[in-house]
Amino acid sequence: MTLVTASPLPRKRATVHDVAREAGVSRGTISRMLNGDGYVSADARERIEAAIRKVGYVPSTTARNLVRQRTNAVGFVVHEPHALFLEDPNIGAILLGANEALSEADHQMVCLVVGSERDAERVGRYLRGGFVDGCVVVSAREHDPITAVVRAAQLPVAFVGHPPDLQDMSWVGIDNVASAHEITSRLLATGRHRVAMIAAALDRDSGADRLAGFRQALGDRFDAGLVARVEHYAYSDGVRAMTELLDRAPDVDGVFAASDALAAGALEALLRAGRRVPQDVGVVGFDDSAWATRCTPPLSTVRQPAEGLGRAAARSVLAQIAGEQRAPAAILLDTPVVWRASA
Rank of each mutant, 00 (worst) to 15 (best):
R70M: 03
Y126I: 12
A73T: 09
D287V: 04
R192P: 03
G308W: 02
A140P: 01
A199T: 15
R248P: 08
D220N: 14
V177L: 12
G134M: 01
G282F: 08
Q108S: 10
T147S: 15
V255P: 00
G24E: 08
G36K: 07
D205W: 13
S139A: 08
P298C: 01
R64H: 09
V16I: 11
D237H: 12
I91N: 03
Q108Y: 11
V172G: 05
N176V: 02
V157N: 00
G36Q: 04
L267V: 04
R21A: 11
R11Q: 12
E142N: 10
D18I: 05
E182G: 02
D220E: 10
L34A: 06
L84V: 14
R68V: 05
K12T: 09
S31E: 05
A312D: 00
R276A: 14
G38D: 04
P305I: 00
R229K: 14
A189W: 01
L9P: 07
D133S: 09
A44C: 12
G173C: 02
A273Y: 04
E307L: 14
G219E: 12
R13N: 05
A148T: 12
A327T: 09
P163T: 08
A224S: 13
I30H: 00
R141D: 10
P164D: 11
G213P: 03
H162F: 15
V284F: 07
A212T: 15
D260V: 00
W291I: 08
G213I: 09
T190C: 07
